[in-house]
Design a protein around this nucleic acid. Structure first.
Lengths: 344, 344
DNA sequence: TTGAAAGCGATACCAC
DNA sequence: GTGGTATCGCTTTCAA
């Protein structure tokens, strides 16, 4: 099964390889009629670009820029970057380079501007974004993708834009997994105090929905709450103390985020019996609590894999024009307990 | 930072590119003195082969052969192959092809012969093995690696041979993880009936050791057993019925393998209270039991990832002469429950 | 609008 | 032993 080359196409149509290349890459001036015929023959012959030859010939470097919110969770942020860098290593020989730029989570309104500037002042061949879904960001994406720059989102999606694909965790599933684990650890019955954030993020909204949906399957699991923070995770601390003092027989606590604030309260309360807590985010602090048995399990969203995949798919897109089969690429979550938390 | 090419070296030494290539690849006749000087300069200049150019120039296909025991667990076998094929796809453009050959688990004494024949009658550039650690196999590996064929093992290692590296699960860790989970589901106390196989495989031996080591950390967990099969996992069935009838207060059951035989017995016994069971192997049957709540969790050894990695590293070795940093590449295990079993 | 030709970094064959 | 040269499949000037 010999591979079909541009020359093969050229031979069939009795034109030059150069013209074929031009048609295929849509670069430079070309007669529309010729272009069509080339594409047709290419298709019929099953032509596929040879990325090896392409990258060897294309002397210039391709730049992928990643703009990521620097979250309070440095583990997550760093691992996301780590994964991207892994992908970069694999494509180094193809002349692909990745630039990571952190965005301030406190100033979302500045993100679009920063990205804008960078793109204007640099050669950028691909864009990976993790930023808030604001109007100016959507607008910017529309603008850049119209000008031909492939754009992917990671973790936080920006819907209603023209980004090419998204890679991220299945937050809903994460909530369901947490709930099933609770049920197992509670032996099927008990009261679970539930917290969530007031912010309208998919991470917290979807997790909560997954958790509650799954909880409704267990007739002896009682959900108390959810209680909302006051647009500040810190308020979980006092809320925990208040609720645990007033509500009897709480067996477990679930929070869609900021589990560490809750554990801080519990540590300070010096309870005699142990509460079952399952968290969603692996941070330095929650990891410690896991090891100290304050947290029983963490549903880990594999940031490394997210970073790796989004960069890899981006490369595949700008280089081979391949999009992932599904525009929503879900990265599985993983159950971490003391024994395996150090392996990730 | 321009990349150093063979021409650069040639220029420095005032010799031809051809000679440089010969020295670098140790192919064809060359003056020992020249070779040394080339290598020296290459080293000083930081020359690294460009795999892209190499594969473009090297017109021939590289063949990697994988010989794998077709286990009774078709899930595992198929997923191992699936992972390898994923890697193959990535390297297709580099002209790498993978051939998978199944070995009969019932006739381990024939494996070496089959592998031998294949290598003699075909062009093979790399070898991936999952077979028993028999003397004739060790010998065969020694012979082939001496003749320059890179050999890797997957899952089952063949120590005391000259295989280049191994990729597989951390069986010991798997046992520890299972035990921690038991402790959590048992709320720290109870009697665990323990089974293992009489066969001297690392899979069962290491899992058991991990399990027991971890169990010794819990003062209120009592291990009963381990009971051995009679060189036939089927004997777990009657053994389970016998033991559950004679031993009081069993809360959980652990088996290093063949959990399905135990569950079959339990289903047939129609017990009124639920036993906690955690299995090690994901098979069609154990997956069903997991969904039916007979099994609480399965510690999954990610065969796809094993297959992917071993093929990928093999490629990297034969093509770029890169070995994995550690000759033992451990693939992490993963905790599966009902909610996430369908995601793997 | 099209084509010829150089070049990317290597391998491999064939003279010398 | 060594060097010249064709080739791999493609991009990219430059001329026509």
């Amino acid at each position: 099964m010999k591979r079909v080359t541009q020359s093969d196409i050229a031979k069939v149509l009795n034109i030059s390889r150069t013209t074929v290349a031009r048609a295929l890459n849509n670069t430079g001036p070309i007669d529309e009629e010729t272009r069509k015929r080339v594409l047709e023959v290419a298709n019929k012959l099953g032509y596929k670009v040879n990325p090896i030859a392409k990258s060897l010939a294309m002397k210039r470097t391709l730049y992928i820029y990643a703009f990521l919110i620097e979250s309070y969770n440095t583990f997550y942020f760093n691992d996301l970057i780590y994964g991207m860098k892994e992908a970069e290593k694999e494509f180094k020989d193809f002349g692909v380079q990745l630039k990571v730029i952190g965005l301030d989570s406190e100033k979302p309104e500045l993100h679009a501007k920063i990205i804008d500037e960078t793109i204007k002042n640099n050669r950028v061949d691909g864009l990976i974004l993790m930023t808030m879904n604001l109007k100016e960001t959507q607008e910017m994406i529309l603008r850049f993708s119209a000008s031909g720059i492939p754009i992917a989102t990671v973790d936080l999606d920006i819907r209603d834009s023209s980004r090419s694909f998204w890679v991220g965790p299945d937050y809903y599933k994460t909530g369901r997994i947490a709930c099933e684990l609770f049920s197992k650890l509670l032996n099927g019955e008990g009261k679970i105090l539930t917290f969530t954030s007031s912010f309208n993020y998919p991470s917290v909204k979807d997790r909560l929905k997954g958790f509650l949906d799954k909880a409704s399957e267990y007739k002896d699991i009682e959900i108390v709450g959810p209680y909302f923070d006051n647009y500040n995770l810190n308020t979980f601390y006092s809320k925990t103390i208040e609720l645990l003092s007033s509500i009897k027989n709480v067996k477990a606590i679930y929070s869609t985020c900021g589990t560490e604030y809750i554990v801080r309260a519990i540590k300070d309360m010096n309870l005699d019996k142990k509460l079952i807590i399952i968290g969603n985010d692996l941070t330095e602090e929650t990891k410690r609590y896991l090891k100290e048995d304050y947290i029983q399990a963490i549903i880990y969203q594999r940031p490394k894999e997210q970073g790796y995949k989004v960069a890899k798919y981006m490369y595949d897109f700008i280089f081979n024009n391949n999009l992932p089969a599904d525009r929503y690429v879900y990265v599985n979550s993983e159950i971490l307990i003391k024994e395996n938390v150090d392996l990730v």
